[in-house]
């Protein structure tokens, strides 16, 4: 997903969404790595300006039985393929 932040209005877009129910993990989450695959679009690319930032991230939302939820977010940078690495 990407979101904008800065001084003005904000925007957000979910590029890829995947839901896992408890049945996917009959033995619970054991700390093993989970894998996710998606093809990222060509735009919008990550941008960090003074008034606006476009931030890409992987966001994990964990719904717990008692109604609580945990949100974790891992940022990454999306660059055009010709950009220097």
């Amino acid at each position: 997903m990407w979101f904008t932040e800065g001084k003005g209005d904000e925007d957000i877009h979910v590029h890829h969404f995947q839901r896992y129910s408890a049945s996917h993990y009959p033995e619970g989450l054991s700390g093993q790595p989970q894998f996710l695959r998606t093809q990222l679009p060509v735009s919008p690319i990550s941008y960090h300006g003074k008034l606006l930032r476009i931030c890409w991230c992987l966001r994990l939302r964990l719904f717990i039985e008692n109604g609580r939820e945990i949100v974790a977010q891992h940022p990454f940078v999306l660059l055009p393929s010709h950009a220097p690495r």
Binding site: E5, G6, K7, D9, E10, Q73, P75
Partner: peptide, 10 residues
């Protein structure tokens, strides 16, 4: 949190 500007609209 993170590297966000703490004074951004959000």
């Amino acid at each position: 949190h993170g590297d966000s500007n703490p004074f951004c609209t959000r």
